[in-house]
Amino acid sequence: MQKEVVIAKNLAVGYKSKKVARNIDFVLQQGEFCAIVGVNGIGKSTLLRTLASLQPCLEGKITINQIALKAYSFSKLAQKIALVLTEPVATKNLTVRELVALGRQPYTNWLGNLSEPDKSQIALSLKTFQLESLQSRKCFELSDGQLQRVLIAKAMAQDTSIILLDEPTTHLDLSHKVQIFKLLQKLAHEHKKTILFTTHEIDLAIQLCDKMLILNGADNPFGEPCELIEKGCFSNLFPSEMVTFDVKTGSFRVKK
């Protein structure tokens, strides 16, 4: 039987003064790779921040591993959810290994000393993301794509059942975008992690994701990419005078 890892019921997210998105419902199973898509400002990042407990949810209920999100302490939640944000890390003067090692904080003692299991988890993360040769480099020496891989490796080292990522492929060229997508997919399928991320790469998400959540400001459809295409959910995602969705190829075309 598959495990329901994340359940969001009738969710409304945003700020006290302004609700950004409402009527969000979805269920994620263990090992599922799911994208959140939608136009700018529709509330993708706000939803992700709410799931990560960085801001309170306005309405509805979020359940993580059968327990309400609100019931988790910061330290317990850190063992369930790992986070990769769009904001740059505050200091890039850390080495790759030091940054990945910070992912072990939820498990280390009061001083943050690494035990042998911690070290082997770090080594595994570095190996999975092909960062072994870079591990003593400082983060300011890395390219955007390498740095993104380091942050995802940190999330993997955190050894959580869920990883949330906010636009993990911005600033990357096409090949690096595909590389990150493939790595995330592998992480979800082989390491049985539930991965939820926001993205603007709808074409890639349709090809590689198990599930997709479309934020459209109304009913916010959720399901497998093929189902969503059949239902015509992508067709009115963007203003139709600008781009149209080609159902056959599953990609967007610019209107000439």
Binding site: V89, A90, P106, W110, G112
Partner: peptide, 22 residues
């Protein structure tokens, strides 16, 4: 006593919280 959270703060406050820092 703050050494561990100081290390987490190096990544920024949101990351620090996601690593379990109150």
């Amino acid at each position: 006593l703050s050494i561990k959270s100081l290390n987490a703060f190096l990544l920024g406050e949101n990351y620090a919280q996601s690593l379990g820092v109150n």
